[in-house]
Amino acid sequence: MRHPTAAADLPDRLWRAVADGDEYAAADVLHTAAADGVDEETLLLEVIAPVQERTGTEWAAGRISVAQEHAATAINERVVASLAHRRTASEHLAPHHGRVTVGCVDGEWHAFPARLVAEVLRLRGWRVDYLGARTPTAHLVAHLHLTNPDAVLLSASLPTHLSAAHAAVTACQAIGVPVLAGGRAFGADGRLARLLGADRWAADARGAAAALKAGLARPGPAAIRQVADDLPHLVDQEYTMVAQSRPVLVRQTLAGLEARFPAMRGYDDAQREHTAEDLAHIVDFLAAALYVDDPEVFTAFLTWTADILEARHVPARSLLLGLDILAEQLREFPRALGLLREGSAAVPDRPTGPVPGPHLPA
């Protein structure tokens, strides 16, 4: 039974403990609430999840450091585990639905959303094999051969991992295991999950539980397919060329910025490193947008990046200049040029302050 009124102030209380780096205070907030009758699913999805979201927002706004963000995430992960450990042995050993595998696609470090899904499914009676972050597709498939689950739930937060997600989706379906996709990488409406051939998409943990309860049909032999079967636009090779040219594109764009943006001449080593990292992420997101042929993948990242630059007191016009220099290098790539033009047009219309978005790798 839920007690939403009793839980109303819990996110703020948990945030204060997490922001102070006090794991024990954080656990006490949750354990006391549980003892007072707030159910575990509410604590997971309506208390811990918003605090984790706030952690990312505070980092994006420049109010906490990368180290503080990592520390906050570690505390949230440990309090999730502490709640799970309050369950009795009989609760752990008595799943009354089927078996599922939950994990992140190869390369995806942001495992917290998948962890919340795994815990909610356990609470709802599923036997869950939780594989955590960046699960190599070959190892995932080997695990599925051993366990023969009813479904595999694949999580991806960053669109830069969509090609890995696509490979995982097709590999799982090829051995007869249906795929339920989730995470921000697939779009707010799940359109990219459908594009990549996933059997279902869910916006959150409760949606995933509902989809599993409704049932996912096992794929037949027709599920064995090639990448171009889902994404025929890839025959132009633009994605492959941009992805493979990443180091050269970053190096040449950085050199162009140094020549045309005078402020960069006064950058220290740390600022130069940040700039190179930002350029690398821009190229990665450009490649991701090319992979799925979806401009929003690129423009959403650019508007968010512009706000991050402003939070660092770096003018967003430097981003526009970088896009121009990239366009000069990619003048033989019509789809890439189109994306760069749309990205440049989107940046001036960004929100006035930092907004929640995908976390860049620290």
Rank of each mutant, 00 (worst) to 15 (best):
P50M: 00
E53N: 08
R63Q: 12
W59A: 01
H70F: 07
S65C: 11
E46W: 10
I64K: 07
A61Q: 12
P50S: 01
L45F: 07
L45M: 14
E58F: 06
T42D: 09
E53L: 05
R54P: 07
E40V: 10
T55Q: 08
Q68A: 14
E46S: 13
T57P: 02
A61N: 05
R63V: 09
Q52P: 05
Q52E: 14
A61G: 14
A67Y: 08
E69I: 05
A71E: 05
E46Y: 10
G56I: 04
I48V: 15
R63C: 10
E58V: 04
D39T: 01
E46P: 04
I48K: 00
A67F: 08
L44I: 09
T73V: 10
E41K: 02
L44H: 04
E69R: 03
Q52Y: 02
R63K: 12
E46N: 10
V51R: 00
T42H: 04
A71P: 04
E58S: 11
T57I: 14
A60Q: 13
E41N: 04
G62Y: 02
V66C: 09
A67T: 12
A71N: 11
E40M: 04
Q68P: 03
L45A: 06
G56V: 11
I64V: 15
V47G: 05
L45Y: 08
E58H: 04
T42M: 09
R54F: 11
T73I: 09
I64P: 12
S65I: 10
E46D: 14
R63A: 13
V66N: 04
L43V: 03
G62D: 13
W59M: 03
R54K: 15
R54I: 05
V51L: 00
A60C: 11
E41S: 01
A61L: 08
A49P: 02
L44P: 01
E53H: 15
V47A: 02
L44W: 07
S65M: 06
G56C: 10
I48S: 02
A49K: 13
P50T: 01
A60D: 07
E53K: 13
E58G: 04
V51F: 00
E40H: 03
E40G: 00
H70I: 09
L45I: 08
V47S: 07
V66K: 02
L45V: 14
E41T: 06
A61K: 13
A71T: 12
A72V: 07
E69G: 08
A60E: 13
I48Y: 02
E46L: 11
P50Y: 05
E53W: 12
E46C: 07
T57N: 09
I64E: 03
I48D: 03
A61R: 11
D39I: 00
A61E: 15
T42K: 00
E58P: 01
A67G: 09
G62E: 09
T42N: 01
T55M: 14
T57G: 08
L44Y: 15
E41M: 06
L44Q: 04
L43F: 03
G56F: 01
E41Q: 07
W59G: 00
T57Y: 08
E40T: 05
E58D: 13
G62Q: 12
T55K: 11
L45T: 15
G62P: 06
R54N: 06
I48E: 00
I64S: 06
T55A: 15
I48F: 05
I64N: 05
E40D: 15
R63D: 15
Q68R: 10
G62L: 13
A71G: 11
T42G: 02
A72D: 04
E58Y: 03
V66P: 02
H70M: 08
T42V: 06
G56T: 11
A71H: 10
